[in-house]
Design a protein around this nucleic acid. Structure first.
Lengths: 278, 278
DNA sequence: GTTATTATGTTACAATGGTTACAAATTAGA
DNA sequence: TCTAATTTGTAACCATTGTAACATAATAAC
């Protein structure tokens, strides 16, 4: 599965003169077709690209793993979420593996179960937090503040959710919007719970993220919320990323997967933080 | 087949106290679901609406005949041209006929052709303005400020567009976000062109919209833009809506359809406004 | 209330999409 | 060049969706 990533990276670096092979060319064409026609059948793609339907299915699986498109029984739909751009410092949502995705799903589902009727919650940027938005109970009266386009899309599907959005300029690497006025806006909101993500959690250097522009936003959402819930998979522990946004002891609850080391379990418990592993 | 039309007409006149039957209610719900989730399986619709799959299929046939949605082997897709929102005070986009939709398409397409490479533009709320977003040239470097979720969805498909979003609290009737901080944000942006919509254009009472919360936003976008382009179909002329947001002479360009009366053509030309009818 | 009309459900069957496993072809590396 | 790895194709089988015909239920008209 790992080897597929190279295709995507070539897709991302289209303009550079990287040696491209047939498969890469075909996948690029496929994406181009999907961009224009939101829904296409596999049969049609197969005849247009002159390969068997089976090959198209395999290509689509790659695209699905990378959240570019999905095949839903009969029609392939393009996911416009995928905006092609290289990240500030190589940290790209596309780079996450498929295995981690199910972990993220589990973490997200569990975190969503912490939300009660009439709660006002804030959902931070990230692929794990996106899963929270997707797993929120339906037909429950919940207000949700966010600033990510992918999370907004998920919330929109839930008729019970009152959406609050902090806008600004778009950062395609994280799919979030951000500007100074949004910080003011967030500071004027009050929430029972915040679900904050992190790219690094370190015992001495604290909780960090990849991009400096995220810092004021993360600090504002922590400040506006009563209960501070950190959601991140276990691979982020012992990692340090360039942008520091809070100390670990500012966090009330951590939700992560059960690959977390004993060391960390102790450390978290000693810090008086509630830990949930899924 | 003719007899089905009555359901649609009832759908269109929902707020009037027309006798509604179960089927009408269900079809309305169905449309609501499709509005939010672009693709849904018949199985899911069947279980959500508590009727058999066969009934859903028959309902979908009606929607298909009216260009509202289509079922493509396994997934039902909503026709995004049918952007629909229930309004605060009787102003209902659903009331627009199919014929008007193609008019809106034409107006939107033309307005989009006014956008140049490297332009910074602002797109106001509305179904016509949504068509502008959908028709913007691709692979062109354009920055777009908006505050509507439906417009954001269209922009997102265009990789050449730099998205700028003014957030706030969500208003489901217009699909827009709005808050005081967003007004500040908009005032801090500068744009070559603004595409503003109107629910009413009157020679004495000026340009009006349906909801008071739209007014500060519309005033801010007009203030931040060099060229002020009003896009609205000809049925809005001579109409007065409750919320006034600008005088006609503040407008530089009007794009509308060619059903515009001679009176209005003269009036617009005398006011020194450039008129495009499509 | 009775009848005619419309709406919905059920079932069996047809058509299409999806999956798996394996073979053939292609490509990459030494 | 030759071998190993990767990619693609084929075909049989499984799963899902769609269709048609008929029966039943609900509604409207008289």
């Amino acid at each position: 599965m790992i080897q597929y990533l190279k295709y995507i990276s070539v897709v991302l670096q289209k303009r550079e003169n990287v040696a491209v092979n047939k498969k890469t060319v075909r996948i690029n064409k496929l994406i181009d077709i999907l961009k224009v026609r939101s829904f296409v059948s596999i049969k049609e793609l197969s005849s247009v690209l002159n390969v068997s339907e089976m090959t198209i299915r395999r290509d689509l699986e790659i695209l699905k793993d990378n959240n570019i498109a999905e095949n839903i029984y009969g029609t392939t739909v393009y996911n416009p979420a995928h905006t092609v751009a290289k990240s500030e410092d190589e940290y790209n949502l596309l780079g996450e593996t498929k295995k981690k995705n199910t972990q993220k799903d589990d973490i997200g589902r569990f975190a969503a179960s912490l939300v009660n009727e009439d709660d006002i919650i804030i959902i931070d940027s990230g692929s794990t937090t996106e899963r929270i938005a997707a797993s929120l109970p339906v037909d429950r009266n919940i207000s949700v503040l966010c600033y990510n386009i992918n999370i907004l899309m998920e919330l929109r599907r839930n008729p019970g959710v009152k959406m609050i959005f902090a806008g600004g300029f778009y950062h395609s690497n994280t799919q979030m919007f951000e500007c100074p006025e949004s910080i003011d806006f967030i500071k004027g909101v009050r929430a029972q719970k915040v679900f904050v993500s992190a790219a690094g959690v370190h015992s001495q250097l604290g909780v960090t993220c990849a991009n400096s522009y995220e810092v004021p936003v993360k600090r504002a959402i922590l400040q506006s919320s009563l209960q501070k819930i950190l959601v991140t998979d276990s691979s982020k522990f012992d990692i340090v990323r360039p942008a520091f946004f809070c100390e670990l002891d500012q966090i009330d609850v951590i939700v992560t997967d059960n690959n977390l080391s004993e060391d960390w379990r102790n450390r978290i418990s000693e810090a008086g933080i509630t830990l949930y592993t899924v």
